[in-house]
Simulated scan of single mutants.
Amino acid sequence: MEEVKKLPEADVILELPISYEEKGKAIGRKEGKLEGRKEGIFEGKREVALQMLRKGLSAGLIAEVTQLNKEEIEKLRKEL
């Protein structure tokens, strides 16, 4: 390991994944974070849509503002 640290490209070499398992875990974490962000955005849109429904706004306007489809908005209406 000490010999590797002396090489000019040591910083690149030391950043390489140790194994395919480690690389797979890193990819999985990245994909998990992306999926979590998508779910969070969707939940935020649903919450805004619920607030708009409570205020009596039309499903068409809610769909336009939140970019949720009308079917999803109708499901939310039933939750009220």
Rank of each mutant, 00 (worst) to 15 (best):
E43G: 04
L80A: 12
I27E: 12
N69H: 06
G28K: 09
E39F: 05
K30H: 15
E47Q: 06
V4M: 06
S19Q: 07
G44E: 06
I41C: 07
A59S: 14
R29G: 04
K25F: 12
I73W: 00
R77L: 06
G40W: 02
I27M: 08
A63W: 01
E15C: 11
V48S: 01
E72V: 11
Y20F: 11
A63C: 04
E21M: 12
R54N: 13
I27W: 07
E3K: 15
G56I: 02
A26M: 14
S19M: 07
L61F: 07
E64H: 11
E47L: 07
G36T: 04
E35C: 08
G40A: 06
E2I: 11
L61K: 08
G32M: 02
R46T: 03
E2N: 09
K6I: 08
Y20D: 15
Q51M: 11
E39T: 13
E74W: 01
L68M: 08
E64Y: 10
I27K: 08
E31Q: 10
E74C: 04
K5W: 10
Q67E: 15
A63K: 00
P17L: 06
K70E: 15
K25A: 14
L80V: 11
G24W: 10
V12R: 15
G56S: 06
L16E: 13
D11K: 14
V4S: 04
R29A: 12
L16Y: 09
E3Q: 14
E74I: 03
M1K: 09
E64P: 03
A59W: 02
V4W: 09
E43F: 07
E71N: 09
R37S: 06
K30D: 13
M52H: 01
E2F: 10
L34Y: 09
E22T: 12
G56F: 01
K55T: 09
K5S: 15
K75L: 11
E72Q: 13
K70P: 08
A63H: 01
L14K: 14
E35Y: 10
A26V: 09
A10K: 08
G36E: 02
L14W: 10
F42Y: 14
V65A: 02
E3N: 14
L34M: 10
A59H: 08
Q51Y: 06
E39M: 11
G24N: 15
L16R: 13
K45A: 02
G60N: 11
A49P: 00
E64W: 09
M52N: 01
G32A: 02
K78E: 10
